[in-house]
Design a protein around this nucleic acid. Structure first.
Lengths: 128, 128, 128, 128
DNA sequence: GTGGTCTAGACCACT
DNA sequence: GTGGTCTAGACCACG
């Protein structure tokens, strides 16, 4: 795992770590049962404080993405979404709306937005 | 203007106000030259601190969405994006990636994501 | 709010704070909407680090006991349990089993255990 | 002895082993003088580190639940509680309070809590 | 003023 | 070695 951090983006470090792990899961780089970097390992790699990594891992545990075992390490959960269908739809509707509003405001057309979504999906599926 | 705020979403209040104004613009409810609520009016409506509304308006001004005219109020700008093409693309790529990662993590397929984007776009175009 | 901490009990400080808040809620000392001590206030009172109090409050937020509003403070939620009936039963069955096993091991009879439960309940209802 | 472990409960593994042994004693499955699994046997069964089982057994020895005889194995003690009456009461009061606070927080009434305690006691006495 | 993030460094419990 | 808790102190974003 070699996350790239942007310290000047305003997005909290722990958030960026969470997103990276989630991304590695959906892109297939990490599979259920896989062990991920220990808190200490990752904190050294990223040159951030161990507590920052821990916060990311704790949140991921709360979200059901990983589980932590004292003395053993952290592992990817079986990827079963904990949300109901209605909730999943609500979340995704909100995110899609945010994207579309921002994009339209920047002058993109519907087709351009969809094209962008397709490109991003393709990249992820290729593991980029 | 009657924004609905979610105090427990983690999204800053001033951000939610900004998003609402942007949304009203792209959905056609607000057009260039239209006057929007004054800081005082909106802060009363929303029951939030006037400084919070001010921050939202200041940011919107900076982004070129509205302009403030001393003693007269705030108005919607002509919708000319201030960003370069490269920057517009970067912004939208980032937002699209966030959407897709989150959606895939929730188990949605590419087609389902695109369908969602289309539905949202349609809603906005209908002014919902 | 004047929680009493036992620094030598082995129970984490943040856990003790959580229990105290929960206790104040069930005993009626704190009602939905009530503002509780700010992180800083409580950390001064208890002479513990603010981050320790924050951890307690963050967990309580996660459990739906309180909600936090930046710039305003922390408040008691409407006390609606977030768990399903089955889950509530599972939790309480587990806790009851732990109590009974421990008590029987110490040589208490069923009646003595129930008597103890009644006494504790009475104390709590009297606000002790 | 076939303890079931929950690796994700937050309760230390060695604690869960201790609880299981105690439970088997109060439920009558294990009687004074009975030999229990050796450290090695149990560590294999449970797929945990032998040192973890050892810690559980050491603690149980300290509490007077079992005794270890060099080269022969571990055996259940005559069930004489080592604690003073005051201490026994303190322990059970604390556990009862934890149960009641948690239960009330989940919306259970006093009667429901007592009913639950009775059911659990009955189950244990039936050896479940 | 509030909560939120992060650091540097310590100590403990568990495996 | 692992994760878990806690401290002291800093800085930021928000209302």
């Amino acid at each position: 795992m070699n996350p790239v951090l942007d310290f000047s983006s305003g997005v909290p470090i722990y958030r960026q770590i969470m997103d990276q792990v989630k991304y590695l899961v959906v892109s297939g780089h990490l599979k259920p049962g896989d062990r991920i970097d220990s808190i200490r390992e990752l904190s050294v790699k990223l040159k951030v404080n161990p507590t920052t990594v821990m916060k990311a891992y704790t949140e991921l545990t709360r979200e059901g993405v990983i589980f932590q075992r004292r003395g053993q390490g952290c592992f990817i959960c079986d990827s079963v979404s904990r949300f109901s269908d209605a909730e999943r739809l609500r979340i995704i509707d909100e995110k899609a709306r945010a994207l579309v509003v921002e994009a339209m405001h920047l002058g993109f057309s519907e087709d351009e937005i969809i094209e962008q979504v397709k490109q991003v999906t393709a990249k992820i599926n290729r593991g980029e």
